[in-house]
Every structure is written in structure tokens, then in C-alpha cells.
Amino acid sequence: MNVSTKLFKDFFESEKAGGLILIFCTIVSLIVANSAFGNSYQEFWHTQFANHSLEHWINDGLMTIFFLLIGLELEREIYLGELSNIKDALLPIFGAFGGMIFPAGIFLLLTFGTIGQSGAGIPMATDIAFALGILSLLGNKVPLSLKIFLTALAVIDDLGAIIIIAIFYTKTILWTNLFAAIGIFGFLLILNRLKVRNLIPYLLGGVAMWYFMLNSGVHATITGVLLAFAIPFGSGNEKSTSYILQHFLHKPVAFFILPLFALANTALTIGDNVGEILLQNYSIGIALGLIVGKPLGIFLLSFTAVSLGICKLPEDLNWKSIIGAGFLGGIGFTMSIFITLLAFSDPNIINNAKFVILVSSLIAGLLGFLYLKISAK
């Protein structure tokens, strides 16, 4: 087993287990939030520490580490993995592109000119952990190529979400701090070119870059992706700096950071106005975007690219598999909730959108699981 295959297996296994833990944490969080301890539970996440709430530290601090892992995985995919061969990479690239455009288009059709319009990025995202967690439940009934396709698609999807966050969800920029962050990034790139392999200066520089990015107006989690590409990749073997850090981060992210994010961001009180929540134009946009737009966009653009001879479908895959992966791509959860926090300022809209994301992701996951299970027979 080569290094790239081993890391993909590690990544898939950690995301698979992490996805199942995310489901458990979400259920627990919803139960506690709607129990007699609901108010205390919600207040806990708003406990102030160093002028910020615990929820803020998780969303702007710990999630930067999650984005760092995504960046490292993306870098590996580009150098050694599914994205290293442009012919192989084009299928998940087109799929991811369709999976972003169609949901956003559906959402904007329903919300254009309303207060919900700013949430167009919400249904564009795919949750890697949840999607791979559901796919893993099918075991050997799905081919390895589908797991690789979905992983590459979700990683590209996350890159798209990161770009969207940087461009569309940055409101006020403090240029001095932004230039300081960019300057630190440039310094780390110089260290990379000088073949400095010690992780310590990169991590210290990453913390400083995060601080200035946090105070620049650009979302601080972008730092994680920038840092990933500054860290030396080398040959990508087990002794490379990038490999060592990526391998180390798998378990803390899957078993601590993402579950903590789920607990902090799904403390939702479900009242008796569920019908009213689901009928809001942004709610319908999120639901249709994730459940319909995702699979439709992923399938149509993948099919178009293959039909035009731009790329080819792996031999062990068929279009039913791609449709099934498209439904799993509709599991937004982590990234969708993350974008919700940036898109809206009204607490009621945020809570409503979170609830719809949970329901829609559950439906998309069930549809994907059942569709792939039936088609495998």
C-alpha cells in the first residue's frame, strides 16, 4: 500500500467514524436543548472567555484546524491523489461545480430580493464526514471508485465554499491586518522554498496569521487552508512535514473538533411552529437546494462532461452510483451551518436555517443510502 493510498484509507476511516459520531452528537444536542436543561445548555455555549463566547472560539478558532486538515487533504489530492491526473480529476471537478451552481441557483430563484438572499451559499456545501459516514454503512456494496469520487468531490466542494466565504461573506476589511496576515503567509512560503522542514515555525506563524486574519474582517478559518499550502509537502512520503501533520490531525478533528462544533451549533429549540419555519422562502430554498439541486447538478454536469469526452466514467461506476453520490452530496451540515452563521445576523433566521439544514441533510442522506443500497442489488 503506497503512502497516498494509506493516507486516503486513514482519511476515509476517520471521516467515516467521525460522521457516525456527528450523528450521535447532533441527536444528543437536540434532545438536551429541548429538555428541562435546554436554557442552561444553550447559555453554556455563550459563556464568555477572553471576550468571546465558547461557540465563537469553536467556530472561529477550532474550525480553523478543520480547514487546515481540508487544505492538507486537498494538497495531497492535487499532488498524488485523485486530482493529480487532470483527466481523472475533471469528473469530480465538474460534479462539484454542478453541485454548487444548481443549489445556489434554486435558492436565489426563491429568495432573490428578500432578506434570505444572502444565504445562497448554504445549500452549496457538502459535509465530508457525514457523507462518507453514510457511504461507509454500505460497506463493500459500493466500489472504491465511488468513495474516491465522493471524497474528491466533497474536498473540491469545500474549497469552493472557502472561496465563497472569502469573497461574499467578508463585509468590512481592515487592510492593515489583512496585509499583516498575507505578509506572514509570504514569509512561510519563503521558509518552504528554503526547505525548512520543522513544523514549529509554521505553526507559530499560523497562529500569528490567524490572529491578524481574525481582526481583518476576512473569516479567520481561511488561515487554515493558507497554512496547509505553506507547509512543505516534499515527496509526500511518511517523513514529509505535510504527511506528519495531516496524519496527526485526523483523529482530533474527527473525534473532538467536529463533534464539539455539532454540539455547540445544534442546540436548537424545536417549538410548535415547525410548519411556519419550513414554509419560509429561505427554508424552501435550502431544502430544495440540498435535496434536489445537489444530485441534479452533480449528475448533469458529470454526465455532460463524460458525453463531451472531457473525462470518462471509471469502469466500476455507473450513472446510478453518481446519482446516489449526488444525494449524499446534499448532506450539508457542518459547512452549511458554518455559512449560515456568516450569512445571517438574525438569531431566529439562523436557528430556522439550522433546523432546515438538519432536516434536509437527514432526508438527503436517507435518499442516498436507500438509492445506493437498492441500485447495488
Rank of each mutant, 00 (worst) to 15 (best):
S4P: 13
K9Y: 08
D10W: 13
K16T: 05
G18Y: 00
L20C: 11
L20F: 12
T26G: 15
I31K: 11
E43K: 03
W45T: 02
A50E: 15
T64R: 01
E73P: 06
E73S: 15
R76T: 02
E77R: 02
Y79M: 14
Y79L: 15
L80T: 15
L80I: 13
I86D: 11
I86T: 15
K87R: 05
A89T: 04
L91D: 00
P92N: 02
F94G: 00
A96F: 00
F102A: 01
Q117D: 07
A120V: 13
M124E: 01
A125S: 10
D127E: 03
I128V: 13
F130G: 01
L132A: 05
L137V: 08
L137T: 11
L137A: 10
G139H: 15
L144E: 11
S145W: 04
K147R: 07
A152Q: 01
D157S: 08
L159R: 06
L159I: 12
I162R: 04
I162V: 12
I162A: 10
I163E: 13
I164H: 00
I165N: 05
A166Y: 02
T170M: 03
A180G: 10
I182R: 03
G183Q: 03
G186L: 14
N192A: 08
R193H: 08
L194E: 07
K195A: 07
V196G: 08
V196M: 10
Y202T: 03
G205E: 05
G205H: 09
Y211T: 11
F212W: 06
L214P: 02
N215D: 14
H219L: 07
H219C: 12
A220I: 04
I231R: 10
G234H: 00
T241H: 13
T241N: 11
Y243Q: 11
Q246M: 04
H250A: 09
H250Q: 06
L258R: 13
F261D: 06
I270D: 15
G275Q: 09
L278P: 02
N281M: 04
N281F: 02
S283K: 00
S283C: 01
L290N: 02
P295W: 06
V306L: 04
S307D: 04
K312G: 10
E315A: 08
N318R: 07
S321N: 12
G326A: 03
L328R: 01
G330S: 01
I331P: 09
S336A: 07
L342S: 07
A353T: 05
L367H: 01
G368C: 03
S375V: 01
